[in-house]
């Protein structure tokens, strides 16, 4: 008696499947009286603080806020689409959305398939040592007999191998957590880590921590660390990429970027190209 007829189910489901969200957005834009281009942006959550959900289930994070600011500048009507990382580039190609803004680093392999905007962020790397150890990174002769832990195969590994391979004993670990553990055990004199990881695992900014940062944060050369994170669009959507680039220039110039950056980070994530 309470069974729904298949036809009724179909009538209920079809509009949902056909992307009701998009049509609603279009209606709202039309109601504003101005024609705004609809841009659907894919994001993979959670990856805090770049993109995650609030307890209420709303999307938030640095990428989301910056993306919305960029859309504001470019006069786009933006919607966010949650998409798993594995399928995020195929989904772009299949026109499930128009852009990816999900802390995606510019790499050569990806550049062959998608068009990247200018980079908007690059997380810095940092040297870490035990509190009170007298080590000077700039003094190469003084680094002899010391060892350094890095995560194997990362850009940090490459930097240390190319710059310090002749003086430091490099120990390569499977994960960054293993590096942190061996800093704590006392096996390692130095670690070269992604800055957010060093903050998280070795708490290098806390005064009561056993570990401290050595020297400045490092995010160059580009030949090793890459250009940074960027928005990806389909290769032929040049106009869209250009629009994002102009909007990026704007948010850097008027301080919006810095304001958003300070909301989520207490360190500088600007790529070297924006310094």
């Amino acid at each position: 008696m309470n069974r729904l007829s298949p036809r009724l189910v179909g009538a209920l489901l079809l509009p949902m499947l056909l992307g009701a969200g998009v049509s609603v957005q279009a209606d709202e834009a039309a109601a504003d009286g101005e024609e705004r281009d609809i841009v659907r942006i894919a994001v993979d959550v959670p990856y805090p603080p770049m993109e995650y959900r609030t307890p209420e289930g709303e999307l938030t994070g640095f990428d989301i806020d910056l993306g919305n600011a960029l859309c504001e500048r470019a006069q786009f009507e933006c919607t966010w689409v949650v998409q798993n990382w594995d399928g995020i580039i195929p989904g772009l190609m299949a026109r499930k959305y128009d852009a990816i803004m999900s802390s995606m680093r510019i790499t050569e392999a990806r550049s062959r398939r998608v068009l990247f905007t200018e980079p908007y962020a690059l997380s810095p790397k940092v040297w870490v040592a035990r509190q009170g150890r007298d080590i000077d990174i700039a003094d190469r002769a003084g680094l002899k007999e010391l060892n350094v832990g890095v995560q194997r195969g990362t850009t940090q590994d490459r930097y240390v191998t190319e710059r310090y391979g002749d003086v430091l004993d490099i120990r390569r670990y499977a994960t960054a957590d293993d590096v942190a553990v061996d800093m704590q055990s006392g096996r390692l004199d130095l670690a070269f880590l992604n800055y957010p990881v060093a903050l998280d695992t070795l708490q290098i900014t806390r005064p009561e921590s056993d570990f401290t940062q050595l020297g400045p944060r490092i995010n160059s050369p580009q030949s090793i660390f890459g250009k940074g994170n960027a928005i990806a669009v389909r290769p032929y959507d040049r106009a869209l990429a250009e629009a994002f680039n102009r909007a990026l220039d704007d948010v850097y110039r008027d301080g919006t970027f810095e304001r958003l950056m300070q909301r989520y980070f207490d360190y500088d994530i600007r790529p070297p190209s924006r310094d």
Partner: peptide, 13 residues
């Protein structure tokens, strides 16, 4: 850095 370690290194590089 055993044989597998070397392979990992080359792979990651």
């Amino acid at each position: 850095m055993d044989l597998t370690g070397a392979a990992y290194y080359v792979y990651a590089r």
